[in-house]
């Protein structure tokens, strides 16, 4: 047994243990914290799976943003009416059997890989040079499967619209109900003044490095969102109303530029979402920069939650 194997087994046991405790925890707060820890551990697992791009995304979104979203919710649900529905033991047992069956099926599938494992990696690398990118994952996201990436940005916009549309009519155009830190705390203010510049540098770095090494618009955008939220939670910046004139243009600038470049490809290159030869890299970087901004604003507002206050005049 190699030392890698020992490490991996330890990691897996820890991950599974935290997962079970998250499900089994009596208290929602404990469950959510378990989940945050779980997200951070998973990013180590992704490193071990040689997927650093995913590890970055998981660290930022899975651990950071989702955790913060859930913590906000759990604090507000604390005094909510309890739940009197309890599930009977036989039903629990039947569910457990069913879930075990699903897990077993997946395990069988995992344990029976094809004899010759097929891969697209050589094909990805072969054609990557054409685009001038060095990061194969970015190549898949922005060159080969750009359509999925583009549509996923529309999904983000729709999700945000969905969150906003839940608001009562009286507060439409108003301010998301992000809970801010009630006490003016000098330490938090200090953090919120010091961390964002660092975060912005990290975000720019992520976006810039993404073309040749792991990183990119998703990770950069998430860091931006987190920094923005931090500044708002500390009360240094107000949560903007969704009627702000700069807000929606910023949200769509990424997908719109992506779409426009894609359409231009129909004329200037061979096809929709194809890049003219020699211009691929600068165009993709432009798309990534715009997307970083859009993703940052979108994730920040998604985490800020539904509208709760009418816009102040």
């Amino acid at each position: 047994m190699t030392i890698f194997a020992v490490f991996d087994i330890g990691l897996v046991v820890l991950i599974l243990g935290i997962a079970v405790s998250t499900i089994a925890a009596r208290d929602a707060f404990a469950a959510v914290i378990g989940f945050v820890v779980y997200g951070l551990l998973l990013s180590i697992a992704w490193v071990r799976l040689a997927a650093v791009d995913v590890a970055l995304t998981e660290a930022a979104i899975g651990g950071g943003m989702t955790g913060m979203l859930m913590l906000g919710a759990v604090a507000r649900l604390r005094f909510a009416g309890g739940n009197d529905i309890s599930i009977s033991l036989p039903v629990r047992f039947a569910t457990a059997v069913l879930c075990a069956l699903v897990a077993a099926g997946l395990a069988i599938a995992v344990l029976s890989p094809p004899d010759a494992i097929p891969t697209l990696a050589p094909m990805v690398m072969e054609n990557l040079a054409q685009s001038g990118l060095g990061n194969p994952v970015a190549g898949v996201l922005f060159v080969y499967r750009a359509l999925d990436t583009l549509l996923e940005k529309v999904v983000l916009i729709l999700a945000l619209l969905g969150v906003w549309s839940l608001a009562p009519d009286s507060v439409w155009g108003g301010i998301p109900g992000l809970r801010v830190y009630a006490r003016r705390s000098s330490t938090l203010t200090f953090l919120a003044q010091l961390l964002p510049p660092v975060g912005i540098v990290v975000a720019i770095y992520m976006c810039w490095v993404g073309a040749k090494e792991p990183g990119g618009a998703f990770q950069g955008g998430t860091v931006l969102a987190a920094m923005w939220l931090l500044v708002m939670i500390a009360g240094l910046k107000r949560v903007p109303s969704i009627g702000q004139p700069w807000l929606r243009p910023l949200l769509v600038v990424g997908p719109v530029i992506f779409l426009a470049i894609g359409l231009a490809g129909m004329v200037l290159a061979n096809a929709f979402l194809a890049y003219p030869p020699g211009y691929a890299k600068p165009l993709i970087v432009a798309v990534e920069v715009a997307l970083t901004l859009s993703i940052g604003v979108a994730l920040g507002l998604l985490a800020a939650g539904p509208l709760e206050q009418a816009q102040q005049q």
Partner: peptide
């Protein structure tokens, strides 16, 4: 080094917040 500094900074502040 900057990772260490970052953890130092956030560690110090988080401790303050939690202690509060």
């Amino acid at each position: 080094v900057s990772i260490w500094l970052l953890v130092q900074l956030s560690g110090a502040i988080v401790t303050q917040l939690i202690a509060g």
